[in-house]
C-alpha cells in the first residue's frame, strides 16, 4: 500500500468517526428536546397555576368566578370513578390473563381472544366512549353516571392488565408449577397458592400503569356526556346506619379532573387558564407519582427475585 492509499483510508476512517460523533450528538439533542418539552410543560403549569394551589382550591366547587373555583367535585369524582374502574378491571383482567397463560388450549378460540386483546389495545379511546354511550348509557340504562364512566375506563385498561398478568406469569419458572403438581395440587390450587401470589408485584405494576392512564382519560368520559358543571358531591359510599355501605353514588352525576381542566382550558379568560394550569399540575403530579411507583416496583422486582 503506498502513501496515498494510506492517507485515503485514514480520511475515510476520520469521516466515519465524524459521522459517529455527529449521530451521538443528534441522539443527545433529540433526548434534550424531549426533556426540554417536558420541563417547559411542567414549568409553565407550575408558574401559571402556583397562586391557585392552596387548600381552598381543593375544597371548593367549580364556580363562575375563577378565583372562587376549585376542584372538590373533580377529585372526588376521579377517586370514585377509579374505584369502579379498579374493582371491575382488576379481577377481570387477572382472570383473563390467568386463563390465557395457564388454562387456554391451543385452538382457534384462544387465537381469536389473543388477537382480539392485541387489537383492543390499539382502538382509539374515544371509540370506547361511543361504545359506552350506546351500550352503558342507553341500552343498559346506567345513565351518565359514575358507574358508566368507571366501567368504560375499566374496559379501556383491561388489555394493559391482561398483558401485565401474562408477562409476570410467564416469568415464573416451570419447576414451581411442577413442584406443586408433584405434591398433588390441582390446577386451581397451583394458580391460587403459587402463581398469583408470586406474580402480584408484576400485576400491580400493570394495574398502576393502567389506572394512571385511566385517570387522565378525557375523551371517552366527555363522549358519554358527563356534565362539566357539577357543584355537588355524590352521596357518600359510607353511611352511619347499617349496612354502612350504600351504592347510591354509583348512579350519581359527576365530573373528573381532566374534564374540569378541559372546561377551564376552553375558556378565554386568563383567570380560568390559571385554574387549568393548577388542575393540570395536580393531574400530571398524580400520574407521575403512579408511574414512578410502577417503575420503582418493577425495579425492585428485577433486583430481588431470582428463581
Amino acid at each position: 500500500m503506498n502513501h496515498q492509499d494510506i492517507a485515503a483510508v485514514r480520511g475515510i476512517i476520520r469521516s466515519n468517526r465524524r459521522w459517529d460523533l455527529f449521530f451521538a450528538a443528534a441522539g443527545f439533542v433529540a433526548l434534550l428536546l424531549g426533556v426540554l418539552a417536558f420541563v417547559t410543560l411542567f414549568g409553565q403549569m407550575v408558574l401559571n397555576g402556583w397562586e391557585r394551589l392552596n387548600p381552598d382550591f381543593f375544597m371548593s366547587f367549580p364556580s363562575r368566578r375563577a378565583a372562587n373555583a376549585g376542584i372538590l367535585s373533580a377529585w372526588v369524582g376521579s377517586l370514585l370513578v377509579m374505584l369502579v374502574t379498579a374493582v371491575s378491571a382488576v379481577p377481570l383482567g387477572v382472570a383473563a390473563g390467568v386463563y390465557l397463560e395457564e388454562y387456554a388450549p391451543k385452538n382457534l378460540v384462544t387465537d381469536i381472544i389473543e388477537i382480539n386483546v392485541t387489537n383492543l389495545a390499539g382502538v382509539p379511546s374515544i371509540v370506547y366512549g361511543l361504545l359506552a354511550l350506546g351500550v352503558f348509557v342507553y341500552a343498559f340504562g346506567f345513565g351518565q353516571s359514575i358507574l358508566t364512566a368507571g366501567l368504560t375506563l375499566g374496559l379501556l385498561i383491561l388489555p394493559v392488565i391482561i398483558v401485565a398478568t401474562r408477562e409476570s406469569l410467564r416469568a415464573i419458572p416451570v419447576h414451581v408449577r411442577e413442584g406443586a403438581y408433584g405434591c398433588g395440587a390441582t390446577q386451581w390450587q397451583v394458580v391460587r397458592d403459587h402463581l398469583v401470589p408470586y406474580s402480584t408485584p408484576g400485576i400491580m405494576t400493570g394495574v398502576i400503569i393502567g389506572l394512571s392512564r385511566a385517570i387522565g382519560e378525557t375523551a371517552p368520559i366527555i363522549t358519554i356526556g358527563a356534565l362539566t358543571f357539577i357543584a355537588f358531591l355524590p352521596a357518600s359510599p359510607i353511611s352511619d346506619t347499617a349496612p354502612f355501605i350504600n351504592f347510591q353514588w354509583l348512579t350519581s352525576g359527576f365530573t373528573v379532573m381532566p374534564i374540569q381542566m378541559f372546561n377551564w382550558t376552553s375558556r378565554p379568560e386568563e383567570a380560568f387558564q390559571q385554574n387549568a394550569a393548577a388542575a393540570g399540575f395536580i393531574l400530571v403530579f398524580m400520574t407521575l407519582m403512579m408511574n414512578g411507583l410502577a417503575i420503582w416496583l418493577r425495579y425492585r422486582l428485577r433486583k430481588s427475585i431470582s428463581w
Partner: peptide, 15 residues
Amino acid sequence: LELLGGVPTIVYGYF
C-alpha cells in the same frame, strides 16, 4: 420516556 408517555393528553392540549 415512560413518564413522558404517561402524561394525560388534555395536559398536552393545554400545552
